[in-house]
Design a protein around this nucleic acid. Sequence first.
RNA 1: CGGGGCGUAGCGCAGCCCGGUCAGCGCGCAUGCUUCGGGAGCAUGAGGUCGAGAGUUCAAAUCUCUCCGCCCCGACCA
Length: 570
Amino acid sequence: MKLSRAYIPTQKETPSDAVIPSHRLMIRGGFIKPLAAGIYTILPIGWKVVKKVIEIIRQEMDKIGAQELHMPAINPIEIWDESGRNKSFGDEMFRLKDRKGRGLVLAPTHEEIICDLARKYIKSYKDMPQMWYQIQTKFRDEPRPRSGVMRTRQFTMKDSYSLDCDPEGMRKSYELHAEAYRNIFKRCGIKFHVVGASSGLMGGSASQEFMMETENGEDVLVLCDNCGYSSNMEVAASKFQEKTNSGKYNSLTEIHTPGKRTIQEVSEFLSINPWELIKSILYISEKNEPFIALVRGDHDVNEEKLAKIVGAEIRPAHPDEVKEVCGAETGFVGPVKTAKKVRIIADNALENGKNFIAGANENDYHLGGIDVSRDIGFASFGDIRNVVSGDLCINCGSKLRVTHAVELGHIFQLGTKYAKTMKAFFLDSSGKENPVYMGSYGIGVERLVASIIEQNHDDKGIVWEPFLTPYHVHVMPINMSVNEIANMAEKIYNMFIENSIETIMDDREVSPGFKFKDADLLGMPIQIVIGKKWLNDGKIELKIRKTGETFEVKEEELLLKVNSILFNKA
RNA sequence: CGGGGCGUAGCGCAGCCCGGUCAGCGCGCAUGCUUCGGGAGCAUGAGGUCGAGAGUUCAAAUCUCUCCGCCCCGACCA
């Protein structure tokens, strides 16, 4: 491709709304163009990269025996009512009506359709195992699209589904996927962690996420660099650090704390450590039952864990509900003497603790000297807090590290949840009817591309690996108006093309600096410069984008050199 | 959905506070000449319903209201 004819709209200025590097570089390099919030056109060189990533995915999926199919992106809403997820997806699902008024949805994922296929065609244990996948556009009306192509409302997903007769079969399919995913991310040059995760809206038993560590990630990870324990913060476990309370308040005492609401304000006001306080938060379950969650002052409530213990969806209470249940405004809420009797769930770190301070359920007052077993002995205990940096690993006792990451892939063992509600049954070898065991597995394609850039760039631009780059070689004739240069560039360009090396040539009549900057921004692995050195010494300059290394090469050696750099060919 | 910010030429922005030579700057774009090793110089030129609507006023990019869009921070997911 010649740049003079290519649609690669690079720009010098960083768009003001792009914050993370991959977003900035994809916009500046002409890889993507925004159309609306969370909706992007993928421009030609962006699409070239996407296609290469998809090919890697396809190869690895085929390798584990999965079969590619293509399901409709537009679904009748009834099938989503049947699984109950029309409701649970809520506003996140795009809904529309056809001309007759029939309800349709733009599919955010495809478990329902797979289940429908399964119940129609899987009749016998002999029909399984099956693994089906597709690479397809998904639609999710995200509450907050973000960070360019990292989180969008329309995106490409590789989603696959396994169907098995029993749990062992399902685990086998799950392991095959885990293996394929490791290969895919390795081949994309991603450094990743596989972590235990929450199943969220998908439901089911086990699930793991493939995460790339980056400060710009939306997820929080807990890692043990010693034994390799890794988990999403949503479900991470840890041993908490034991703390000793000063005993400044060692019997039940009301303390006047005017206007001091937060842990920080109260601990500073009373000159005590944050961990001597009990953080009390009122939640309301979906069954409209209020309850108070208690964690130590230096900890945070983990709502995922809490919801699991409660066995229902939960939400923080509104201010008026707090007033009604506890008798005081937020900031002065505590477990002792609430206005209404209320269930209390406390974190393990509080069990048997003494001399704590909490809100007194009276505005501008806290209560000191709380003995947990004496004063709130009716509470139940559990792990309901987030791991904090410095907590210890439950396996090996080393210090845990808390870090940010992007979720690139997620694999689920769904079990029989969908099969049962949607009646996907088969006959086993004894003629008995059983529900199908499902697994579901996803990779966000554009997000993967953005992550690759996130991990492979410098201050000048993107740095592509040879197997993902839109073009292998970027040829730069320094001055198109000098015939010897233009002709040589043309000759080299044609030679590369004939030898299956993907080449882009900057044949524009622009200044050299302009070409160098664009080449660095676009990030092809090899830059070929034809300029003064060619005119004076008959040498062609070859520069490796990643290292900045340069070579002066004779024309007849060029192809060999390029091949060896790109593909390690001798 | 809460909190914060923004919307003026393709991109980045100034102007708004204090209504009235405020329709402006840089980059980009077009044409010509000169240039040609890290986003060249000179000259000429095209390009804007100032997000939309309503209101206040002799007069609105500027003040008021409503709506729309976009971004960032929090509750969800590949």
